[in-house]
Nucleic acid binder design. Structure first.
Lengths: 146, 146
DNA sequence: TATTGTTATACTCTATAACTATA
DNA sequence: TATAGTTATAGAGTATAACAATA
């Protein structure tokens, strides 16, 4: 076995575990950062989605994050309690609830985005700007393709 | 804001989530593959470690994977039941147990590694060989540096 | 009868700490 | 008293499915 082959085999056996370690670390710091705003990562993701595209149904939002319906329910309960989102029954199809962000959510958005951006920057700090771009591109292809 | 700036900011806001998605997907396929051999991911990792470096204490093994002592205990219970690892009391320091792989484990190792290698290859299939190397290098630096 | 969303239940994971044996 | 490892217990997180309302 050549050296490069050995390198390749070793790598194949551990890249997945590296992804996991990176993910766990990211989750820890991002959860902590968002907790200061009283949000979980899912709640933040849902809120951003709602700010960007209001009027979606809960099923539609859940599909984006591959989250089960009850998690979206719970996340929205929390966001609603915090005055950040509201559910409005669709008058034509009264089974669905269409979700909208409140003015309070729009006021909070910049601060949230700043927090997330700063946390992300910290988490990715070991890499140069060019490398961050590479990593993002590689992960995008990996996730999209699998 | 320039286009590249917009790209950068969007990216910063989502690379971490991409890592998480990739990690979750990897965990799902790898867990399923190892389950066919009756192993969890931690059990497999511990077993590989023990095959490579026998005679370590449980605390030492736990440190490698940032796993709490009781998880190593449980993993070793399972490996021992399967006849793959054994605990031997250190005669000079009878509090510690030094872990060794059995002959059965050594016989099983090639098949396990083949499974993991194949699963990894499948999981990373959307990327070219060169890209896989890049991803591995980037993640290594990311995990080591943070 | 099927679908949207909610609630309840049971199950798995994890963390914490109590515990045993040894030093 | 401190350490290596184990076991027990409680809490969080998750999945499953029962449920209500609407179609």
């Amino acid at each position: 076995m050549t050296l490069s082959e050995t390198t390749r085999r070793t790598r194949e056996g551990s890249t997945g575990w590296l992804i996991q370690r990176a993910a766990r670390r990211f989750e820890a710091v991002m959860s902590a950062a968002l907790a200061e705003h009283g949000l979980t990562m899912l709640e933040f993701a849902v809120l951003m989605r709602v700010l960007e595209t209001g009027g979606q149904t809960q099923a539609e939002i859940g599909a984006v994050y591959a989250a089960p319906a009850w998690k979206i329910s719970r996340a929205l309960d929390s966001l609603q309690r915090a005055g950040l989102a509201e559910r409005r029954r669709d008058p034509l199809e009264r089974r669905v609830q269409r979700i909208h962000a409140t003015a309070q959510a729009q006021a909070l958005a910049p601060a949230l985005q700043a927090t997330v951006s700063a946390t992300n920057a910290t988490a990715l700090a070991p890499l140069t700007e060019a490398e961050r771009g590479q990593l993002h591109a590689l992960l995008t292809r990996l996730v999209a393709g699998g």
